[in-house]
């Protein structure tokens, strides 16, 4: 186990933004914090690396208490914060070289390590570029490279792909998979369910600062929603509600239409009954984490 968080609480005045969060993270594991904006993801991550002081609770990284032994604990961490706090006073290469000095990696060693990482994240051709000349995706790659300078055993990625285009997100996902393969523990916060589903071995679902459920993405989907859902547009609540009750399935409104869980035994019958009502649109798909989140919180992840 590389990280252990015990009963973390954070309170601002009367408002508790994180309430009793506990979890562990193993080597080579990607753990995802999934939650809508304001769920407490960033505050929790802040407590994990020492930027936010917990009101209660402890965090240990490889047995080191982050509050009491922060310097040694952070020697083993790589941190990608939400904002690109790259140093605009340096070019791409120097951003890495000077950041390396904070880990006591200097001179030739720093130069070599910076070169390796630039190649690893595909920025070798940008070494002499100013930060202002990089696109959002290239900046995120550089922030990730910077977080890996000290060969960390645990990497915190706080909403690392927010604002990136699909290609850049795919690149980022590939790099996270590589970290996992190298045995690095990765803690990822995101509100993208496809990202969480694809990358994470295990998920903690957060709402109002509390863990409302946890498990592997597949387990969460099956136990909370089921295998499949139907999306239907153009029918009224008066039609949907009795049908859902008759089949004993969960339903809710979704955009202009409705979402219903497909019952495992008589899904075809439900589909046929809905088709008979001539909806504008009727589609069936595999359930996903967005549905889990909707069911558990009544909120969409994007909110």
């Amino acid at each position: 186990m590389v990280l252990q968080a015990n009963d973390l609480w954070k309170q601002y005045g009367d408002r508790a933004v994180v309430q009793g969060v506990s979890f562990t993270l193993g080597r080579g594991e990607v753990l995802g914090f999934l939650g809508a904006n304001g769920a407490g993801k960033t505050t929790t991550v802040g407590m994990l690396y020492g930027a936010v002081i917990p009101t209660r609770g402890t965090v240990e990284v490889n047995g080191l208490n982050v509050q009491a032994q922060g310097r040694r604990a952070r020697q083993q961490m790589g941190i990608v914060t939400q904002d690109d706090n790259l140093d605009p006073d340096f070019n791409v290469l120097d951003n890495l070289r000077y950041f390396a000095s904070f880990y006591r990696i200097t001179g030739k060693t720093a130069q070599v390590r910076a070169g390796e990482l630039l190649a690893e994240v595909g920025l070798q051709d940008y070494a002499r570029h100013r930060i202002s000349e990089l696109s959002g995706g290239l900046k995120r790659r550089l922030v990730l490279a910077r977080a890996l300078l000290n060969r960390p055993q645990i990497v915190f990625l706080d909403e690392p792909t927010t604002g990136l285009d699909p290609d850049a997100r795919q690149d980022f996902w590939r790099m996270v998979t590589q970290l996992k393969q190298q045995g690095c523990g990765v803690l990822l916060t995101t509100h993208y369910m496809d990202e969480a589903q694809r990358l994470c071995d295990r998920l903690l679902l957060l709402q109002n600062g509390q863990v409302i459920d946890s498990g592997t993405p597949e387990t969460l989907i099956i136990k909370t929603v089921g295998e499949e859902v139907i999306e239907v547009d153009g029918l009224t609540r008066e039609v949907i509600e009795p049908l859902a009750a008759e089949f004993g399935v969960w339903w809710r409104s979704l955009g202009m239409g409705y979402l219903l869980v497909v019952p495992p035994s008589n899904g075809e019958q439900l589909w046929a009954r809905l088709s008979d009502r001539h909806p504008h649109r009727l589609s069936r798909r595999r359930a996903n984490l967005e549905d889990v989140f909707l069911r558990l919180t009544g909120q969409s992840l994007g909110n």
């Binding site: 020492g50 310097r71 904070f102 000290n150």
Partner: peptide, 10 residues
């Protein structure tokens, strides 16, 4: 946010 960035290191 240079301070913030440096404070993610030891």
């Amino acid at each position: 946010r240079t301070w913030h960035a440096i404070l993610t290191t030891p």
